[in-house]
Amino acid sequence: MLGSSEQTRVIHIPMFKTSLCSLLIVFLLSVVSSSFGQVKVLSFEEFERQHLNAEGDTLFVINFWATWCRPCVAELPYFLEAEEEFSSDEFKLLLVSLDFKTDLDLKVKPFLEKKGIGSEVVLLDDLDYNSWIDKVSEEWSGAIPATLFLNPEKGIYIFKEGEYEKEILLNQIRQLL
């Protein structure tokens, strides 16, 4: 009895390892594909809970943009450069698309793919702008691009409406890190 159970174990352990390996591969593949193709669609309440009310000692840089907004598209590379330059422990970039939800597959995903953008992107799906713009910042008129710098633990909550120049953005981030 004992021998057979030992034998079973000997047979099963490599099988277990194989299945664990394949599970890991599937998991890794899904992580890679999600970072490129997936854009979470959030209501304002979800966005507020998950991002505006985030916790921790990290500088969250939240950029509000849209594929149709020329100055937004022009400044996006600077945010991507910042993401490359600063470590992910102390810096986290979030791109908040204000495109219509109906344009997600038509415009937003093809845009991200074309530009090779693998950063975290969410689509904020709430067209009743007047109900939430002030909750992001009372300084925001609603024009985009607009950017929020947020470090919950350090009490940083800085909002800026308008387009960034590369060096001004990078300096702003360096100052806040």
């Binding site: 849209a66 907004c69 100055p71 204000l98 702008y129 007047n130 713009i133 002030d134 925001w140 008129s141 609603g142 024009a143 985009i144 691009p145 409406e161 308008g162 387009e163």
Partner: peptide, 9 residues
């Protein structure tokens, strides 16, 4: 007063 998303001037 209301706010809305739009293009910057």
């Amino acid at each position: 007063n209301t706010k809305a998303v739009g293009c910057t001037i």
